[in-house]
Design a protein around this nucleic acid. Structure first.
Lengths: 321, 321
DNA sequence: TTGAAAGCGCTAACAC
DNA sequence: GTGTTAGCGCTTTCAA
């Protein structure tokens, strides 16, 4: 390639990287030759030399979950716009695999993004040491050079509670997320003030998927709540579907609310009341956190209450009364 | 690190790669030192030397689309199981960006997977030349060393048609996918035999998203079909939602069917009749196509008809008659 | 069994 | 404005 254009390899490099002084005539000759052979510099060699791969890594519990898929989308788009690649790893919700993927990717990438990591704090700290830059979604870690993007779920839960209380609800079931999910604890915080105001919150173990929601419904009903708040919209869709099977009408017999405003939540029947969070925005913010000196360690993302048809005043008697 | 264990770098390498003759005593010393310092070899250097990055690339039109997200999930899981990393790029449905991403990634990765590529055949061929291995999803290319995994959508469409015909439908609207989508042409092929048998198919321009589905409904209705087949389940959910707004009842006034069996399709109201395709399986097959010498160039994936409540016999009069 | 040295492909530093 | 050279961090000869 260099000899095809009859120049040194250094000149080729100068032309292709740009910004270096090269005569127009030579520039042309090199461009032509490169084009001819379809020459592109070896990225591994470039990486080795410059000490940066222009790559960010993303580790998510479940690549199939639209919530994380959209965060990934937001991040990948931002990264691509600044000529960076994106490495991904799904962890199948397994903290062990999450840790291994993170440690492994850390060595490759300029910046690492961990979405809702479930691993222990000491391990997280290990990852922080291994990574050049680390950003966390929906978790925080006291450590220099680790940034976070967290959704203020406690505000969302509180808003949902206030909305339901205003409608007249007094007994609300909360379908909990995965144990050890930091973001579930965030949500739980949001119940403090409503509980202090006299609202009864019944916590029901659940999870984060549609199937989890379906399965948790019957237990939740044994507590005779007039409304159900779900860990996320996925769960809520599962709940809606199961309630329909059980012959209960939403919102007539029971109100249901989700969190996240998943793409489909506007199109369920009835439409789902939820706390809307822009996942793509989360991804974007995560990217901006890779910048050298962010002013604060944690970016808070605030959502907004979206009321749709799935919430209404409670029936006069308890459902199935 | 090497001097910490008082050995040469060559010995360190031998211990860490394994399989080379090293005395147990030295092995132990190196292991300890590596563990101490948290040493991990520089992947760029390894890549440069061995000429392989142990990485596969995936290019998808939309990372936020669950269909592609799940293919990515399937592939990433398989890749990780064999110690490979996964690079992703979303193209925002833009053929130009798709081409650039593909060419760019090709240089990095050992194998490249293009999902439903929209780029022109000549460009696709260029990518094929640039990539070490290339696999296509839902598109084929006559080229040595290019494999494909295609879903037999024509079978799906035919099955859907036969199902609807058996219910008594005679006029069916088809909401088309994105122009230039190879997989839409596949679907169109599926109408040949039903049309020959006397079924009327009305093609309505649409797209691949929920919003596209919503918007296409009114035009579709002007043709007074008794059933609508949608490019995919996303579109179908949009259609369902819009029909509800218009006060039309599914399946009483109109039958609706989708393609793909998206996760939510079992939980819409009414449940969606669809042609089910295992996306994760597609991802897995794609990975297996990266093997050195696959026996055939194209893997066909066959789905199955799933009938749910969204399809039923047509009303006696045309809807809104 | 171990060490020394070459070289993977590239770019920055230094000549000219 | 251009060529020559050193060296990024690793693994793999080749010697010892």
């Amino acid at each position: 390639m260099a000899r095809l254009a009859e120049v040194s390899t250094a000149t080729v490099s100068r032309v292709l990287s740009g910004g270096k002084p090269v005569s127009p005539e030579v520039t042309e000759r090199v461009r032509a030759a490169a084009n001819d052979v379809g020459y592109r510099p070896n990225p591994a060699a470039q990486t080795l030399l410059r000490g940066s791969s222009r790559t960010v890594g993303v580790v998510v519990p479940d690549l199939g979950n639209p919530y994380f898929a959209e965060i990934l989308k937001g991040l990948a788009a931002e990264a691509a716009a600044e000529k960076h690649h994106t490495l991904v790893a799904g962890t199948e919700e397994d903290p062990e695999q999450e840790y291994r993927s993170a440690i492994e990717l850390a060595r490759w990438v300029d910046g690492l993004l961990l979405c809702a990591p479930r691993m222990s704090t000491p391990r997280l700290r290990e990852v922080a040491e291994a990574a050049r830059r680390l950003v966390l979604i929906n978790r925080v870690l006291r450590h220099h050079a680790v940034g976070s993007v967290v959704v203020d779920y406690h505000l969302g839960v509180r808003a949902l509670c206030e909305h339901l209380a205003a409608l007249g609800h007094k007994r609300i079931a909360y379908l909990q997320g995965p144990t050890a999910a930091w973001s579930d604890q965030q949500r739980q915080r949001g119940f403090r003030s409503p509980e202090a105001s006299g609202l009864t919150i019944i916590r029901v173990p659940c999870g984060s998927t549609l199937a989890d929601g379906r399965e948790a419904v019957e237990e939740a009903l044994t507590y005779k709540p007039t409304a159900i708040i779900c860990f996320n919209d996925h769960v809520a869709v599962g709940v809606l579907s199961r309630l329909r099977e059980l012959g209960l009408s939403v919102p007539h017999d029971l109100s249901v609310a989700g969190i996240d405003n998943a793409p489909m939540s506007a199109h369920t029947d009835p439409g789902l009341t939820t706390y809307a969070v822009s996942t793509v925005e989360v991804g974007r913010q995560a990217w901006s956190r890779f910048a050298p000196k962010p002013s604060t360690a944690t970016t808070h993302i605030r959502g907004e209450l979206i009321t749709r048809a799935s919430t209404a005043p409670p029936p006069h008697k308890s459902p199935r009364g």
